[in-house]
Amino acid sequence: MNKILKDPLLWIFLIFSAYPFMPYIGSFISLGSELLLWFVFALGFNLCLGQTGLPSFGHGAFFGMGSYAAAISFLRLFNHDAFVMPILAGIVLGAAAAALLGWLIREKKGVYFAMLTVAFTQVCFGIAFRWDEVTGGEAGLSGVLRGAFFGLPMNNPIVFYYFCFLVFIVCAVIIRKISRSCFGLSLQSVRQNPLRSQYLGYNIGLYKFSVYTISGGFAGLAGALYCLLTQSAYADVLDWSKSGDVVMATLLGGGTVSFYGPILGSLIFVICKNLISSMWVHWALLYGLSFVIILSFFPTGLMGIVKKKRNLEPRLRGNAPAQEQTRREEP
């Protein structure tokens, strides 16, 4: 019982179950839904970055694809009357795209891996932006409606919020299960010492491919929810700035040192981005500079600072000092 009470996820769930009833912030209900889908996005992304050490810059593309898949399937396939199917379509397309890319670049390392994911994102953006017949091109797709789900009116923002909340709970539990499983430990071994992993019998290319696919599925799911939230899909959502956002949110929270980092990071990141962009036209100036400042001075993010404090006394047990975890020289 005590163990369950100490579980950070439980507290996060409790806080967000009360979100719509909080003073002031509770009135921004769609911000709440956006936060929840960002948590799913960032947690899924961190399976790649924090767990496996894959420097992926392609998750914006998977998010965007999920978004388009939901919009297109809603408008074209299901005759404007479906709720679950567009979401499933988002997951499937996100995972399929990630699987394709992941298979092609499973043997690549570091800089090459990152560059190829950037290139992939650009291709997706090019297609979405130009293929008017399917994606609506520059104008994007709009008119996506949220129908009923088991009789619950999803067009009610609060009901939709709780739907997102449910999805978040399921995803967070699954992702944590994955990262604590044998499979998760193997992924960690791939990050920390790929050569040794191979000599323990791991086909590391296959592991990278698998985790990339899973992670892409979560990104697609988040994208589909975003489509339903905004009731539209634009090429902007799969631009590489989206990829930058999710990496930044994850690093800000300290995804490389803590499982909960991405949640903390995207909470702050999304709120600040919404707040500043509504207050100042030239918000991008602060937005860009924040990248520089965070990465220069807090490379292990907020959780990194917390952990470093705790690790100040030299101890033998447990984790290595937080600093070592990301400040490793590439071999």
Partner: peptide, 22 residues
Amino acid sequence: VYGQDPLFGLLITLGFTIAMEE
């Protein structure tokens, strides 16, 4: 960011670029 994960270099220069463009 020398010697760190490639995403660090990419992001820090991206951030700088976004700021300068603005």
